[in-house]
Each structure stands twice: as structure tokens, then as C-alpha cells.
Design a protein around this nucleic acid. Structure first.
Lengths: 166, 166
DNA sequence: CAGTCATACTTCAACATTCAAAGCAAAATA
DNA sequence: TATTTTGCTTTGAATGTTGAAGTATGACTG
């Protein structure tokens, strides 16, 4: 099997970068509209998504150090958007929980992706939706190759390296 | 058209978030390996990609203020990775150019996406590549709806849209 | 059980990013 | 020419980020 469409990898990279850029820029606007910084909004989103995460979980999910999480949570606590709950099972741990005000902020600042994506997605034909899900999950898998998730099902056929090195 | 698969939008959002997260985390590692900060690496990448951009172009592309660009470029100039070239056409403008050392850093820190993506992409079957490109471009279009994106030359061919307008 | 090590979090000091506001110089416009 | 606009820099202030050190708790080992 030889290289048939060398442009395609570039095309998909361009599309991916557009996706990343659009999402990032929009996330900032959303955060500003919600009256918090982007980093603080991300904390709120993770706290809302996971079940009262510990500081450690937050740090892992955001990819920052625990010291950073402490600083961010300090700010959010000072604004009464989250609160710290000492864990009963392990007293070293602290669970971060949303306050009512924090939930309000989250509602006013819906996920950056959802806001833009959901409507258009819902209008697609059935087969188009299915194809999109399949493609996105495949890309996500490709990007996570040697990450800690132990790279699941990527081998859909024979692997053959092309001659190009990037 | 009624709702047939309400889960799919969630599945695609989850996949998109995984893509965003993997990319962001990896970009930081790359920057650190290259000995610059993530923001500085992004400046270098844009300078390498565009043709000696002005500070204004950089600010637009990165979505930050000109003051921020000035600060970032100051740091890169101090480390001799870029240089400022007064524009001949418009003496208000300043073109940012890569130095030889800047090019070296860029080479050592290939694009966050490329590093992980290209190899896996090349191994896909022809029809899978085509489907991926189509899907990614569609998602990018969905996310860019009302964006003031400057990004020109993206036309890679007929994007045959179905009956819907996006 | 005492001692040791590992884990979860915080504090501290230093630096990077970011922006609004003010300032300056050059271009565009009237 | 006078005025406005544009591109960039400077300044001052807030936030984000981290490594290193410190504290408290849990886990393990003999």
C-alpha cells in the first residue's frame, strides 16, 4: 500500500487546529462573560462534572500541579463559588464542592463546546452523526496513544509505515 | 426529523474534549522539552508558519492583546530566538522573524499535533483517511460559525454539504 | 507497636502571562 | 494642515504556575 493522498494529513491537521483555536478562543469569551478567569472556569466545570473531586483529581485532570490547584481553589472559595469539604475516609484529602452560586455561574457559562456544537450536530442526518462520532473517537484514540490510558483498540488492520518521517 | 440517537452528541463531545485535553497537555510537555514556555512556543510556531507576521497578526492569531505580544516577543528577543524587523512599507509595523536559533527550537519541538497524529493517520486505510478529513472539517466549520477568523486558504476542495446550512 | 516511607495538601518565593490605560510615532483622512 | 486612526510599547496590577519546603495523615515493615 503506497501513499495515495499525502495532502490529507495536512488537511486534517489544519482542521484540528481550527477546532482547537475556535474552542480556546470561545472558552475565554465564555469565562469573561461569566465573570471568572478561564482557569477558574475550568475548575468549576470539572467540579461540576466529577463528583466532588479531590484537589489531586483536579490537578490531574487539568494537568497542573497541586500548588496551582490550591491557589485557584483559594480564589474560588474567596468568591464563594466552591467550598472545601474534608474527606471522611481519608483526612488528608479535601473534596471540592460547588456552592449554589458556583452552580449558577456554571449554568450561565455553558461548556464552550456545547454552546457551539450541539445545535449544528442535532441537525445532521443520522448517518452523518454516526460517522462524526466514529471519526472523533478514532482521532481521540490516536492522540492518546502512549498516554496513561494504555491505548486501546487502534489496530484496525495491518500497520504499515510510510516513508515520510515527521 | 426527530431525535434518534441523543447519546451521540454526548459521545462526540466527550471525544472532542479528549482531543482538546490530550493536545493541550502534550503541548506543554513539548514546550518544556524545548526550553520555552507554552505561550512562547506558540509565538514561535506562528512566526514559523506565517511569513514574518506583524505584532498585530500575532495578537489576532493568538487571541491576546498587543501588550501581551510585546511582552512575549521581548522575552524571545532577549533569548535571541526571534528578532524585530521594522517594516519598510509601514513604519508603524514591526515584523517578527525567526533567528537561526529560533528555527532550531522549532525543529526540536515539532507541532504537538503532528508528533502524535501523523504516524497513526498514515496507517489508516484510504477511505478512513478521507472520512476523517471530511468529519474534522465539518466539525471545524460547525465551531467556526460566526467567528471572525482571518484564516484564509483553507479551501481544500469541494466540501459537499448536505441540504443543511451551517 | 515503633519507625519509616508515601501521600495529600498548603505555604512561600519567584517568574510568566495577561490586560487596561496611557503614551508615542506614523499613516490616513478630512 | 489639522484631526483621527492605527500599530506598538510602557506601566502597573492581577492571575497563573511551579519547585521546594513544611505539615498532617495514611500505609507498611520489621
Amino acid at each position: 500500500m503506497t501513499q495515495k493522498h499525502p495532502d490529507r494529513v495536512d488537511e486534517s491537521l489544519i482542521a484540528l487546529r481550527r477546532i482547537l483555536r475556535a474552542t480556546e478562543l470561545y472558552a475565554r469569551d465564555l469565562a469573561q462573560a461569566a465573570g471568572v478567569t478561564p482557569a477558574q472556569l475550568r475548575v468549576l466545570q470539572i467540579v461540576g462534572e466529577k463528583k466532588d473531586p479531590t484537589a489531586k483529581t483536579l490537578a490531574n485532570q487539568m494537568g497542573v500541579s497541586q500548588a496551582t490547584v490550591t491557589a485557584l481553589v483559594d480564589k474560588l472559595v474567596a468568591r464563594s463559588l466552591v467550598s472545601r469539604q474534608p474527606s471522611a475516609q481519608d483526612r488528608r484529602q479535601t473534596n471540592i464542592t460547588l456552592t449554589t452560586q458556583g452552580e449558577d455561574v456554571l449554568e450561565e457559562a455553558p461548556d464552550a463546546l456545547q454552546q457551539r456544537y450541539v445545535r449544528a450536530f442535532a441537525d445532521l442526518a443520522d448517518w452523518e452523526q454516526a460517522q462524526l462520532v466514529s471519526s472523533l473517537e478514532r482521532v481521540a484514540a490516536m492522540l492518546n496513544v502512549d498516554s496513561l490510558d494504555a491505548a486501546p483498540v487502534l489496530a484496525t488492520g495491518e500497520l504499515r509505515m510510510s516513508k515520510k518521517t515527521y
